[in-house]
């Protein structure tokens, strides 16, 4: 067996750790990617009855991005079980209370509801910022590719680059630059 194959086999049968940076990522899109690693669906030996899922560490969950007006339109429902115990929490309110909750619920909902789901969720670690405990970070061997590009702010681009960037629009002659 070649060295590369041996590593591949080791990675398949071991419980390897992946890291995912949630910065500017849509949680509902990335949940479908994270789910595959958590359940082990990226492995050739995957079977629902075989416990081959990996561990995923999500960082920067405070900086997730929702599309359009989702922050104020998406509501999370909870019912206490008592009459009148229903409550609807908007996404931005939930994110204010717990910045890890939206991504957690998104991954939970992306998986099918069976007895395994709660155990699979135990393998998901979410951190609101970049501060990850050292004992967690030293296990990580792989990084999951982000789905969307992290947009660059205009004030973070150097002024020289903005000035020398190819221009599309030309001012008309009688224009006063404000």
């Amino acid at each position: 067996m070649s060295a590369a194959k041996r590593v591949q086999q080791w990675a398949t049968f071991a419980r390897s750790w992946h890291i995912f940076d949630c910065k500017w990522q849509d949680p509902y899109e990335s949940a479908h990617v994270i789910k595959k690693y958590l359940m082990g669906m990226h492995k050739p030996i995957y079977h629902p009855m075989n416990d081959c899922g990996d561990v995923v560490v999500c960082i920067n969950s405070r900086e997730i991005a929702l599309r359009g007006d989702e922050w104020r339109k998406r509501a999370y429902f909870h019912h206490t079980g008592y009459p009148g115990g229903a409550s609807w929490t908007l996404a931005w309110e939930l994110h204010n209370k717990d910045p890890t909750m939206i991504i957690k619920k998104a991954v939970y909902r992306a998986m099918t509801g069976n007895l395994q789901r709660r155990h699979t969720m135990q393998r998901l670690f979410i951190y609101p910022g970049e501060n990850v405990p050292e004992d967690v970070l030293q296990n990580v061997t792989n990084q999951i590719r982000q789905i969307r590009y992290v947009p660059k702010r205009l004030d973070h681009i150097p002024e020289e680059e903005v000035k020398n960037y190819p221009k599309v629009m030309e001012y008309p002659e009688d224009f006063v630059v404000k």
């Binding site: 500017w24 849509d26 991005a65 599309r67 359009g68 104020r72 996404a91 931005w92 994110h95």
Partner: peptide, 13 residues
């Protein structure tokens, strides 16, 4: 409120 969190947009809309 909701304006302080990151938002992206879909150009097809």
């Amino acid at each position: 409120d909701y304006k302080k969190f990151n938002t992206y947009f879909d150009e097809t809309t």
